[in-house]
Amino acid sequence: MLRFRSHSLIRCLSSTQRSQIKANKLPPRPKINETEITEAFLKGGQGPGGQKINKCNSKVQLKHLPTGIVVTCQATRSQEQNRKIAREILAMKVQHHYDPENSRETVLHDRRKSIKENKERKNKKKYVLIDAERKEKELQQRLEEEELLRGLLNMGIQPDPSTQK
C-alpha cells in the first residue's frame, strides 16, 4: 500500500504529462542476428604477449556479412561490455541500411535535431525580446530628451548674445 501511495504521490507532483511521455517514445532497440555476424578481437601490435605485456584495451570488431558493415568498439576496458555495445551499434546501422526512413537511427537523429532547433529558437526568441526591450528604452530616452529641449525653447531661453561676440 505504502509503495502504491508514494508512487501516486510522485506521479501527481511530476510535471511531465502522460501525453508528453508517449510523444517522446522511441522505437525499440533493434537486435542483431548472431548467425549473420563475425566477431574479431583486435589486441593490436606484434611482439610478445602474455605476462610480458600488460595491455588494458580490448577492441571488438564486428562484421555484418550480408551488408558488409563493419563496426569496432573500445568504449570500455571490459571486452564483454564492448561486445554488447558493438552489437547495439551494428544493429542500429544494419536497420538503418535496410530501412533508412523508419530506423531508430533516423528517429534519434531527428529528435536530436529538433531538440537543437527548439533550443536555438528559444534562444533567438529570448534575444529578440531583449533587443526589442532595449530599443524601446532607447526610443523613450530620446523622446524625453527632445521633449526637454523643446520645453527649453518654448520657455524663450535664447542663446546669450554676449557669448556670441
Partner: peptide
C-alpha cells in the same frame, strides 16, 4: 600500469581488484 591506478581490471563478466604486488590479469 593503468589497472593499478584505476584499481580494477575487467575479467570476463567480473571486475577484479588490482594492487601493486599482485600480477594484473591478462587478456590471454
Amino acid at each position: 600500469p593503468l589497472q593499478y591506478i584505476l584499481g580494477t581490471q575487467p575479467f570476463g563478466s567480473i571486475d577484479v581488484k588490482c594492487r601493486p604486488g599482485v600480477l594484473i590479469p591478462r587478456w590471454e
